[in-house]
Simulated assay, not measured.
Amino acid sequence: MASSALAKPQMRGLLARRLRIHIVAAVFVSLGAAALYKFGVAEPRKKAYADFYRNYDPMKDFEEMRKAGIFQSAK
């Protein structure tokens, strides 16, 4: 009685089917992580650098550091 109630497990092609599902899932997860990094880290960092260098005066910064005594060779 009990043996007729259980279905036989499908064993042929099981690894190939599971790998196909996992590879597709891994591709979507990696694309999502790459998009999150690009828009969450890389783009704000590029914007911060652009904002900083938009008004940056290297000669003014050099003069301030020279007056503070940071450089030994430039007096």
Rank of each mutant, 00 (worst) to 15 (best):
F39D: 02
V29H: 08
M59Q: 15
K60F: 06
I21Y: 06
D51L: 00
Y37H: 09
P9A: 01
M1Q: 08
S3N: 14
R54W: 05
R45I: 10
S73R: 15
R17H: 11
E63Q: 09
K47E: 01
K8R: 01
R20F: 02
D61V: 11
A25T: 11
R20C: 07
M1S: 13
R66S: 03
V41G: 02
Y53R: 11
E63S: 08
L36P: 00
K8I: 05
A74G: 00
A42C: 00
P9E: 03
L36T: 09
K46G: 01
R17Y: 02
K75M: 06
V27W: 07
K47C: 03
R45N: 09
R45M: 11
R20V: 04
V24L: 13
S3D: 14
K60L: 05
A25N: 12
L31Q: 13
D57Q: 03
R66H: 05
L31M: 13
M1D: 10
D57H: 06
R66I: 04
R45S: 09
Y53N: 12
R45K: 11
K60E: 01
P58K: 10
Y56L: 04
A5H: 13
H22L: 14
V27M: 14
A42Y: 13
A42G: 00
E63D: 12
S3H: 15
A5I: 14
R18M: 11
F52K: 12
D57L: 07
I21M: 09
E64Y: 01
N55G: 12
L19R: 13
G40C: 04
P9G: 00
A5L: 14
R12A: 11
F39N: 02
M65N: 03
D61Y: 07
K67F: 02
D61W: 06
G40H: 07
P9C: 01
E43Q: 14
A42T: 12
V24N: 10
R20N: 04
P9W: 05
F71R: 03
F71I: 01
G13Q: 01
A34S: 12
Q72H: 10
K47M: 04
I21A: 10
A33R: 04
V27A: 14
I70E: 07
S73V: 15
A68W: 02
A34M: 12
F28G: 14
A16P: 03
K38N: 11
A2N: 12
L31A: 14
A16C: 01
A5D: 11
A33E: 09
A7K: 06
I21F: 07
R54D: 07
F62R: 10
Y37F: 07
K46Q: 13
F39L: 00
Q72A: 09
L36N: 03
E63G: 03
S30I: 04
A33C: 07
A25R: 10
S73D: 13
G40T: 06
D61M: 07
P44I: 04
R17I: 00
F39S: 04
D57P: 05
K46D: 06
A26R: 08
K38Y: 15
K60R: 10
D61L: 05
F62M: 09
A7H: 06
M59N: 13
L19A: 04
N55W: 08
A74Q: 15
A16V: 05
Y49D: 04
M59E: 13
I21V: 15
R18F: 08
Q10E: 07
F52G: 04
A68K: 08
A50E: 05
Y56D: 01
Q10R: 13
R45E: 11
A5T: 14
N55T: 15
L36H: 07
